[in-house]
Design a protein around this nucleic acid. Sequence first.
DNA 1: ACACGGATTGTTATCGGTACCATGTTATCG
DNA 2: CGATAACATGGTACCGATAACAATCCGTGT
Lengths: 334, 334
Amino acid sequence: MSARVTMRDVAQAVGMSPMTVSRALRDDRTVNAKTRARVRQVADDLGYVYDSTAQAFRTQKSGFVAVTLPSVNNANFAETFRALTNGLGEAGLQLLLGSTNYRVEREEQLVRQLLTRNPEALVLTGGHHTLETRKLIQGRGLPVIEMWDLPADPLGHVVGFSNGDAMAHIVGHLVRTGRRKLAFVGASEGADMRGAVRRAGVVRAARMHRLPEVAMIDAGPAPVSMRHGAAVIEEMGRDVAKYDALVCVSDPVAFGCLSAVQRMGLRVPEDLAITGFGNFEVAKVSNPRITTVNVHAEDIGRQVVAVLKGIFDGEINEPVRIDVGSALVEGETS
Amino acid sequence: MSARVTMRDVAQAVGMSPMTVSRALRDDRTVNAKTRARVRQVADDLGYVYDSTAQAFRTQKSGFVAVTLPSVNNANFAETFRALTNGLGEAGLQLLLGSTNYRVEREEQLVRQLLTRNPEALVLTGGHHTLETRKLIQGRGLPVIEMWDLPADPLGHVVGFSNGDAMAHIVGHLVRTGRRKLAFVGASEGADMRGAVRRAGVVRAARMHRLPEVAMIDAGPAPVSMRHGAAVIEEMGRDVAKYDALVCVSDPVAFGCLSAVQRMGLRVPEDLAITGFGNFEVAKVSNPRITTVNVHAEDIGRQVVAVLKGIFDGEINEPVRIDVGSALVEGETS
DNA sequence: ACACGGATTGTTATCGGTACCATGTTATCG
DNA sequence: CGATAACATGGTACCGATAACAATCCGTGT
């Protein structure tokens, strides 16, 4: 019934022009203090709600930063996302989130959709994209940050770490503790590049240390989690004992493997070492604690915020490449 | 440098009016098939990107559904969120996500911000809000859904379950298996109402069964997770054995407790039962499996989508109240 | 050849803020 | 006291897409 209250209505109510109302509701300089107070009071009384859409349209600044994540249901990405939300919230920016379900085609579709909202920056997780995605992004003046990876051919700015290096930490550690027969537990080869890169990192590191060929244990299509790790090990049965160590693509998978291994009466780390990835909470709380790699998820978020602020303030003009590194976290499973 | 490409530019390039271009890019009826094909081709060639902001402004339909969650870093909420994203994505709607960090004041601020984006519906997690939040929402024609709860005085539609009932399932089960001395492990009393409601549910159920007073074990300010559960039990030491059962506010907390209890050499469930809440993945994979309550997180998301579709299609006019229920999941910790 | 109706395409005004420029009003100073 | 600056407010146009209505084209039947 009652049409929406606009600035025009507020202006009429206080007997001033919409322009003054507009200024009173944000600009703090030119408007007289008493006027501003009165305007705000009246706006409140009328139940006026500011229209960000109109503002975004007129100023051509949406106030959005678009972010793609492989999955929200992942404590690590959630941590990064939280840091982004908090940091950008302070700057008056709002996050537009899309999740790719670990598929680059889905990412492309998502980027297409997000771009129509005219975001002020685009933050992508990972460094692998379809050609079409790259085309969509390039040429536009839009600031782009790829995070959680260190791509060889970046689209713009980069804040991440090397999955290969991180896996090398793990393998090095296993070698030092006398393990030689490794098996990698991860998702099937397919759309998810993240897992593939980690797998490749393990293989490369194993070769460097002159270990026998790394076995591959397929836990099913991405995303894989606790239950997939547990299921694939249960299926294998005690055969799993022929390996020295299970190198898992993530901590949840490692925990699943750990649980299954323990259930069948094998001891960790005596009979078998298990390592994870990501320093999830479960790694520190499980029993025994899982050896893993900390990839500084929250720090990535904070650094991305810093880069974005630098871009918006005009302090950053050249593409930035920040390696937040990764650090071995020795647990009790290796 | 090169200004943004608009429909006008595309129109000029194909030698037609912007109106035709507009129609060609969506409406499939009135535009000639060949014209449409040509328009789309040219739009593509020019790198035209549709401007949803302008559309939202002109049509007064933002294409957004605003959602608040206590935390993204929670597998349960993430599950609901995923279901919402998928379901609403099909309907061409995009989610605008905000997280409240378990605080109603933060929720108020968030709602205020989200409303300026003119969302087509508002989905809130939980049934407790500040008075100001209620005022902000009411009077506007905006469809509102509260989920994950069954509030006594709802703002609009409701899709949820009773935390009290769910806890009663747990307590009933513990009583049946012979436990009497219960302790509740959860966050400190404070801003988070969710935890408080669960605690109250345990207390009420215990009274009904004429059990001794339920002890309260404070795991610190919300949100509490694995490490808080583990820490508080470690701190207590073997004193914890004076209870029959630890009733935890969530599965992650229960897993933390379980791990700490096992570390100090106590056996679960022989010496002590432990129960969780939410049917998280960890409950099914841990060793022993944790007894918990399934609250159908994904189903909640799907039902919310169904309600929203019903509202948008004009099929739902009265406030809806859907109880998705909750179900005991017997594990091995009780 | 002409009227008629469906199929296509065009014209105009508009959504709600705000950039830009203009105007009026009150202090300040030589 | 008049000129000038600093302050405060108003007028107008516009961001890009589209609803509503208008106009044109074309094939068909008589």
